[in-house]
């Protein structure tokens, strides 16, 4: 069964674009990545799935239930971690955790205690006194303490130090092994590459690529570094060009024969050609180009 399925899901803010005819399928038990630049429509997608905003057209189901008809049932089995965690002023961490548990009509004290221990979160602190990272920890405990079937995480590691990021992903991986579906929206592509089996790329409100992370990282483009002199003028397919004193580095997605011709005409002392990582592919192809080359 699909944990998340959208069919031509569209959200317009008046005339402004939110998401357009989004088709997405996340299998139950998957750890699914959702990648896209700012304003691409990641948060709009998540907010629509959670019922915070209504779709303009199309449909979507979460855990087999329609998002417009079964909002409460969906939310009862879903833990959500927002990108920016804000809470009621004047409350202590333990009060926030209790409020969240009470709203779910569950006793989550044991689980909350375990999570607070692992994330080194002091439940007696007032939320107003917490740093951005510590507020994020409160939101993480709120999302996880009821042991939901589905986790929707929006930029989950913002504000967390590297050690905490590791502790967080350890917990997420454990939950995923227990069968929890994880929908992870992130700008940090290494996070997606390390943790997700499949991912979708969204740009300008549309899904432009979806598949296994390995597939998405596959591209004919190569990172080329040349030591020496080479004339690259008017050579198509070059992106992210960097010159140093005696070397040049660029992403090349054009005709390899043309590049070899230019290299043979130049004065090359050393050459390396490597596969770009997902971060580079995302930055230079998914953001502007319209798909991998």
């Amino acid at each position: 069964m699909e944990a998340i399925q959208t069919k031509d899901l569209t959200k317009m803010y008046g005339k402004a674009r939110g998401i357009i005819e989004l088709n997405l399928a996340v299998e139950e038990g998957e750890l699914f990545g959702f990648i896209g630049p700012n304003g691409a429509g990641k948060s709009t997608t998540i907010r629509t799935l959670l019922g915070l905003i209504s779709p303009t057209s199309g449909s979507a189901s979460v855990l087999g239930k329609d998002i417009t008809l079964n909002r409460e049932e969906i939310l009862a089995q879903t833990g959500y971690l927002p990108s920016e965690a804000l809470f009621y002023s004047g409350m202590r961490v333990r009060d926030i955790l209790k409020l969240s548990a009470d709203l779910r009509k569950k006793d989550c004290r044991q689980e909350a205690e375990k999570l607070c221990d692992r994330l080194q979160l002091d439940p007696s602190r007032k939320v107003d006194e917490l740093s951005f990272g510590n507020r994020k920890k409160v939101a993480i405990v709120c999302a996880l303490q009821a042991r939901p079937r589905l986790l929707i995480l929006d930029e989950p590691t913002g504000g967390l130090d590297p050690l905490m990021q590791r502790a967080f992903f350890d917990i997420i991986q454990e939950r995923n092994r227990e069968g929890v579906t994880v929908f992870l929206s992130s700008h940090v592509l290494s996070e997606i590459q390390r943790n997700c089996s499949r991912a979708a790329v969204i740009r300008d409100g549309r899904i432009i690529a979806c598949g296994s992370v390995e597939e998405l990282a596959k591209t004919s483009a190569r990172r080329v570094s040349v030591h020496g002199r080479v004339n690259l003028e008017k050579l198509d397919g070059i992106k992210d060009l960097h010159y140093t004193e005696d070397s040049v580095s660029f992403l090349y997605g054009g005709d390899m024969n043309l590049l070899l011709g230019r290299l043979s005409e130049g004065d090359v002392s050393d050459l390396s050609v490597s596969e770009p990582d997902l971060e580079e592919i995302f930055l230079h192809y998914y953001q502007e180009g319209g798909g991998t080359q």
Binding site: L50, G51, A76, T78, P82, L86, Y88, R104, C142
Partner: peptide, 14 residues
């Protein structure tokens, strides 16, 4: 205004 709506409305309460 306080951006707590996201917290409140993502809990299973109508």
């Amino acid at each position: 205004r306080g951006r707590t709506a996201e917290f409140l409305l993502t809990h299973p309460v109508s």
